[in-house]
């Protein structure tokens, strides 16, 4: 099924320097009860964003008017814990298209890539620079160039890795099922031989 295509993006970013942000923080389990993919953005970071009476917590970055943009910049080991794809859906649904960190948990990374959300791994040093630049000037523009695999923050650039297959999928809006369905006969033969 086709997803939005991703090539380049120029936008501001939201800083969330906490490390080890797990998917229970991104979207708590009690909000996983929907049977569709839409609407999870309302509960993104629910318990950091709202207090027990559902009032926004002013100090949390998503409630801070000075920050906006389509890039979330987070501390290392982002997305650890539960395999819930709802975490990637919530981030995307909220309006983010890129998450930057110095380290991602495996399952989250796959889930993000399967939903047109680009996870970019940068060096610890670049992450620190990025966070400082955004906090100093929330209007700092960031350019993500997937085609050339380069991210630019102000005058500073860093290239990033992404595997060629996933890059093609993102740029063209393909998903894995399209490819696997083309292998149907081979898979059937394999299944038969191993049953």
């Amino acid at each position: 099924m086709s997803k939005d295509k991703f090539t380049t993006l120029k936008t501001t970013a939201v800083p969330l320097p906490n490390e080890n942000i797990d998917t229970d923080q991104i979207i708590p389990a009690r909000f996983l009860k929907a049977t569709t993919r839409e609407g999870f953005g309302d509960n993104l970071f629910r318990d950091w964003r709202y207090d027990a009476d559902n009032n926004p917590i002013a100090s949390f970055v998503l409630n801070d008017k000075k920050y906006s943009g389509k890039i979330l910049v987070a501390g290392k080991n982002f997305g650890c814990g539960s395999s819930r794809e709802h975490a990637a859906w919530a981030i995307y649904d909220f309006g983010f298209r890129v998450v930057v960190s110095s380290f991602f948990a495996d399952i989250f990374k796959n889930n993000a890539l399967n939903n047109g959300l680009l996870p970019i791994v940068v060096s610890d040093g670049f992450l620190k620079q990025m966070l400082e630049a955004i906090e100093l000037n929330p209007k700092t523009e960031i350019v993500v160039d997937l085609v050339n695999q380069i991210m630019q923050v102000g005058a500073v650039k860093e290239s990033f890795e992404i595997n060629a297959y996933k890059k093609t999928c993102l740029m063209n809006g393909y998903d894995d099922i399209d490819y696997l369905l083309s292998l149907n006969q081979e898979i059937k033969a394999f299944d038969l031989a191993h049953s």
């Binding site: 796959n110 939903n115 998903d175």
Partner: peptide, 22 residues
């Protein structure tokens, strides 16, 4: 290993999953 929902769909549809070897 654990997978996301898009992969649940993948495996349901094709009995396969696309993976790089860890």
């Amino acid at each position: 290993f654990g997978i996301g929902t898009s992969e649940v769909e993948q495996v349901s549809a094709t009995q396969c999953i696309l993976q790089y070897r860890p």
